[in-house]
Computed example of a mutant assay.
Amino acid sequence: MASLASRPPAASVIAQVLRAQSTAPRRSRVDRLFGRSPLAPDADSWFRGALGELAVAQRLAGLGPEWRVIHAVPVGTRGADIDHLVIGPTGVFTVNTKHHAGRSVWVGERRVMVDGQRKDHLRNAAHEAARASRRLSAATGVAVDVAPLVVIVGASRLTANARSAQVVVLSSGSVAGWLRSRPWFLPPESVDSIAAAASDLATWNAAPAPEPDLAAFADLREQIGRARFRRRVWTGGLLVGLVGVTMTAPLWVGTVLAGTVIR
Rank of each mutant, 00 (worst) to 15 (best):
S3A: 15
A15L: 14
Q16R: 15
L18E: 08
L18I: 04
T23M: 12
T23N: 06
A24N: 08
R26I: 01
L33C: 01
G35D: 00
S37F: 05
L39G: 12
A40V: 02
A43E: 06
S45Y: 06
W46G: 01
G52S: 13
L54M: 09
L54F: 00
L54V: 04
A57E: 04
Q58T: 14
L60N: 03
V73A: 08
R78F: 10
H99G: 03
H100S: 01
G102K: 01
S104W: 03
S104N: 13
W106T: 12
V112K: 04
Q117H: 14
R118Y: 03
H121P: 02
N124G: 11
A126M: 05
H127K: 15
E128A: 09
A129E: 07
A132E: 15
S133K: 07
A138F: 03
A139R: 07
T140A: 11
A143N: 14
I152C: 06
V153E: 08
V153M: 05
G154S: 06
R157E: 15
T159N: 11
A160P: 01
S164W: 00
Q166W: 00
V167L: 03
V168Q: 06
G173W: 01
S174R: 14
V175D: 04
A176D: 09
W178F: 14
L179N: 02
L186M: 14
P188M: 06
P188A: 15
S193K: 08
A196E: 13
A197Q: 12
A198E: 00
A198G: 06
P210L: 06
D213S: 06
F217P: 01
F217I: 07
D219Q: 10
D219I: 07
R226G: 03
R228E: 14
R231M: 03
W234D: 10
L238W: 12
V240S: 14
T248C: 08
G259N: 13
I262E: 14
